[in-house]
Amino acid sequence: MALSIDLAVMVTVIVLVLVYKYRWKLRYMFHLAKSKHYCDKASHDHGKYTFDAFISYCDDDRSFVLKDSIGNLENEGNYKLCVHQRDFLPGQEITVNITNAIHYSRKTVCIITRTFFESYCCIFEINMARKENMYSREGKNIIFLVFLEQIPLTMLELIEKQSYKINNPITKK
């Protein structure tokens, strides 16, 4: 009896450790499967994307993104961008909207500030883009980081431990 309880506890601990270790991969796969259920069909790298880029940013940086960046890129650069205020489907879960935006965009552009790393949605977006990069795009780099301010190296190290790696040219002086 005690042996079976010990075995059950051991198996439970191992499963929990594995789920925690692969949490972002599991979330990505879950949300991608969920988005395929809600949408017609996914664009599996046939060169046909709805958007040129998905712009990931914190709401504190909305003014820069909406006034400075989007106007220039869409009007002068002739790019079609996905921005959550304008392009997310109402009534759909935010995680499904994020996953679809990344999956149907050629690139993901992350506007990096200190507040970006304080937002759960921003962390979710960069991790989903990273998983898209690894599993659906055969390792082709789809993530562009735009640093609006200098980020302390300690913050980047903390973020790196949360499951993704960032190379910051600003702090490598």
Rank of each mutant, 00 (worst) to 15 (best):
A2F: 03
A2K: 06
L3A: 07
L3Y: 06
S4G: 04
I5R: 10
D6R: 06
A8N: 07
V11G: 09
V11L: 10
V11H: 10
V13G: 14
V13R: 08
I14M: 11
L16F: 14
V17E: 13
V17R: 08
V17L: 12
L18N: 15
L18I: 13
L18P: 14
Y20L: 11
R23G: 04
W24S: 15
L26S: 07
L26V: 07
R27N: 10
Y28R: 04
M29H: 14
L32S: 14
A33C: 14
H37Q: 13
Y38C: 08
D40A: 13
A42Q: 10
S43W: 06
S43A: 12
H44D: 12
D45A: 10
H46Q: 11
K48Y: 06
K48W: 04
Y49M: 00
F54M: 05
F54E: 04
I55R: 04
Y57H: 05
Y57M: 00
Y57E: 01
C58I: 07
D59Y: 15
D60Y: 12
D60T: 11
D61N: 12
R62T: 15
S63R: 13
F64C: 07
L66K: 15
S69P: 08
G71I: 08
E76G: 13
G77Q: 08
N78F: 12
N78T: 12
Y79N: 08
Y79I: 05
L81V: 01
H84W: 07
R86F: 08
D87W: 05
F88E: 02
L89A: 12
P90F: 07
E93N: 10
V96R: 04
N97V: 00
I98C: 04
N100I: 03
I102T: 01
H103M: 00
H103P: 03
Y104S: 09
R106A: 13
T108P: 04
T108H: 01
C110Y: 04
C110N: 00
C110V: 05
R114I: 06
T115C: 11
F116A: 02
E118T: 07
Y120R: 14
C121L: 15
I123N: 12
F124C: 09
E125Y: 03
N127G: 04
R130W: 07
R130C: 13
K131V: 08
E132D: 15
M134Y: 14
Y135T: 02
G139K: 04
G139R: 02
K140N: 13
I143D: 02
F144K: 10
L145P: 02
L145D: 02
V146R: 03
V146A: 06
F147T: 04
F147A: 00
E149D: 03
Q150T: 07
Q150P: 06
M155P: 02
L156R: 05
L156G: 01
E157C: 05
I159G: 02
E160F: 07
K161D: 08
Y164S: 09
N167H: 15
P169T: 01
I170R: 09
T171V: 09
K172N: 09
K173T: 11
